[in-house]
């Protein structure tokens, strides 16, 4: 079934392209989802000074490495957008796949961490700290996976030179996922 975008999609009363306006609203809704979870965690964390002890069992080097990986992947997706805007499709395509690779490394490190922690007995059920840890990082990990899948789909369009603004939109989403991690990192890894 061929799909033709309606006339409505091409209108831009606010001066923002419709796609970018929508992705900002997606970010708004994601802010409250992650923010709600983090706020619940912070309330418990302030209540329980002893949770600092549990937090010392998370691996700061692994978390730091993942922060670095995500920051770098943010750089590569913004470069992909820059390249797409300049019309350099091959370069843009490569940068997108660099970003997907970054997401892959992030997930590998994450799964290494989880395996180590679970094998030490710190499972989802160990106590509420670990429940929050797995819920928050798991939800974040799902967003990373979703971002990678969407980027892979977009990269096909980029090679054909279609839907180039989508590179910018997925970039905004990816930076948001990055920012969420910037807060999860100190919350679960550094603050002891």
């Amino acid at each position: 079934m061929s799909f033709q975008a309606p006339l409505a999609t091409s209108r831009s009363v606010t001066g923002l392209p419709t796609g970018r306006l929508a992705i900002w609203w997606v970010v708004v809704s994601e802010i409250v989802i992650f923010g709600g979870l983090i706020a619940c965690y912070v309330m418990f964390r302030l209540r329980h000074p002893e949770w600092g002890e549990y937090a010392s069992h998370t691996s700061t080097p692994a978390g730091a490495l993942n922060t670095f990986v995500l920051l770098t992947s943010s750089l590569s997706i913004v470069l992909a957008h820059q390249a797409a805007a300049a019309g350099n499709l091959v370069k843009s395509f490569r940068y997108i796949w660099c970003t997907i690779g970054g997401g892959g490394i992030f997930l590998l490190v994450k799964s290494y961490e989880w395996t180590t922690e679970i094998s030490h007995g710190y499972t989802l059920f160990a106590n509420n700290f670990w429940s929050f840890y797995y819920t928050a990082t798991g939800l974040h990990g799902l967003h990373v996976i979703a971002g990678m899948v969407i980027m892979a789909i977009i990269s096909i369009g980029v090679r054909k030179g279609e839907h180039l603004p989508r590179v910018e939109y997925i970039g905004i989403y990816w930076h948001f996922v990055d920012i969420v991690w910037l807060f999860l990192f100190p919350l679960f890894y550094i603050a002891k």
Partner: peptide, 30 residues
């Protein structure tokens, strides 16, 4: 990251207000 990578520095102002309002509601919740 927000300012330079997400281009909030050159985005329309009200996008920033949208995001900030979401943060305000979160603060209220907390």
């Amino acid at each position: 990251v927000g300012a330079y990578f997400m281009h909030l520095n050159i985005e329309k102002r009200y996008v920033w207000y949208m995001l900030f309002t979401a943060l305000l509601f979160l603060g209220l919740f907390f």
